[in-house]
Structures are given as structure tokens and as C-alpha cells.
Deep mutational scan, measured.
Amino acid sequence: ELREAFRLYDKEGNGYISTDVMREILAELDETLSSEDLDAMIDEIDADGSGTVDFEEFMGVMT
């Protein structure tokens, strides 16, 4: 189920989504998050600083 959700956002099928897209997902899930909260969450999610979120990083957030 998580893989299907990931595929919805990984429109190009390249195995990752951008941190911008991940930020939008988080904002949709919790509309009360401030910009600073979102920045901090993205920094934590994208631990390797690649600017992308792969499936493993995505799973870590969603579980």
C-alpha cells in the first residue's frame, strides 16, 4: 500500500520524489504545520541531503 502511494508521487518512475513534493504531502497531511516545521521535517527525512526522498525514506515517514 505504501509503495502504491509512493508511485503516485513518483510520476516519472525514477525511484524518488523531490523534497518539494514531500513537503506538499506533509502539508496536506497536517495543515497546521508551519513552514519552519516543514523545513525541519524535510531535513530529517532527507538525511543524506540529496534533495530527494527515496522509498525507504518515504516509508520511514509514513510508518
Rank of each mutant, 00 (worst) to 15 (best):
E1A: 13
E1T: 13
E1Q: 13
E1M: 12
L2S: 03
L2I: 08
R3H: 11
R3D: 14
A5N: 07
A5G: 03
A5L: 15
F6N: 10
F6D: 11
F6Q: 08
R7A: 15
R7P: 13
R7I: 15
R7K: 14
L8F: 15
L8E: 15
Y9R: 05
Y9V: 05
Y9A: 11
D10M: 03
D10P: 00
D10G: 01
D10I: 03
D10Q: 00
D10N: 00
D10Y: 04
K11R: 08
K11D: 06
K11V: 13
K11E: 10
E12G: 05
E12F: 07
E12P: 02
G13M: 06
G13Y: 02
G13E: 06
G13T: 02
G13P: 00
G13L: 05
G13C: 06
N14P: 01
N14Y: 09
N14H: 10
G15R: 01
G15A: 01
G15N: 04
G15P: 02
Y16F: 11
Y16D: 01
Y16N: 03
Y16L: 05
Y16Q: 06
Y16H: 07
I17D: 00
I17T: 01
I17N: 00
I17Q: 00
I17G: 00
I17S: 00
I17P: 00
S18T: 12
T19Y: 12
T19A: 07
T19Q: 04
D20M: 10
D20T: 13
D20K: 13
D20W: 07
V21K: 11
V21L: 14
V21A: 14
V21N: 10
M22V: 07
M22S: 00
R23M: 03
R23F: 02
R23I: 03
R23G: 01
E24N: 14
E24M: 14
E24Y: 12
I25Y: 04
I25S: 00
L26E: 00
L26M: 06
L26S: 00
A27C: 07
A27S: 12
A27Q: 12
A27M: 13
A27W: 09
E28A: 15
E28I: 07
E28D: 10
E28G: 14
E28Y: 10
E28Q: 14
E28T: 11
L29H: 09
L29C: 14
L29S: 07
L29A: 08
L29Y: 11
D30I: 10
D30E: 05
D30Y: 13
D30M: 12
D30H: 12
T32A: 08
T32V: 04
T32K: 11
L33I: 07
L33F: 06
L33P: 01
L33W: 10
L33K: 04
L33E: 01
S34L: 06
S34R: 08
S34F: 04
S34I: 05
S35R: 11
S35C: 07
S35F: 08
S35P: 14
S35W: 08
E36K: 11
E36F: 10
E36W: 10
E36Y: 10
E36N: 09
E36C: 09
D37M: 12
D37K: 09
D37C: 12
D37I: 10
D37E: 13
L38Q: 01
D39K: 08
D39H: 05
D39I: 06
D39L: 07
D39P: 01
D39N: 09
A40S: 11
A40N: 10
A40I: 13
M41Q: 04
M41F: 08
I42Q: 01
I42W: 02
I42Y: 01
I42A: 02
I42T: 02
I42C: 01
D43S: 13
D43H: 13
E44R: 14
E44K: 13
E44S: 13
E44T: 12
E44D: 10
E44C: 14
I45F: 07
I45C: 03
I45A: 08
I45S: 02
D46T: 03
D46R: 04
A47Y: 09
A47M: 09
D48N: 10
D48I: 05
D48C: 05
D48R: 07
G49C: 09
G49I: 03
G49F: 05
G49Q: 11
G49L: 06
G49M: 08
S50W: 03
S50F: 05
S50E: 04
S50P: 02
G51L: 04
G51H: 06
G51M: 05
G51Y: 03
G51R: 06
G51Q: 05
G51C: 04
G51N: 05
G51T: 03
T52S: 07
V53E: 00
V53I: 15
V53F: 05
D54M: 09
D54R: 08
D54G: 11
F55K: 01
F55Y: 10
F55G: 01
F55N: 01
E56R: 09
E56K: 09
E57K: 14
E57D: 09
E57W: 07
F58H: 00
F58P: 00
F58R: 00
F58S: 01
F58D: 00
M59F: 12
M59G: 03
M59C: 09
M59A: 13
G60H: 15
G60D: 10
G60K: 15
G60M: 15
G60P: 04
G60Y: 15
V61M: 11
M62H: 04
M62V: 07
M62A: 05
M62N: 03
M62S: 03
T63L: 14
T63C: 13
T63F: 07
T63I: 13
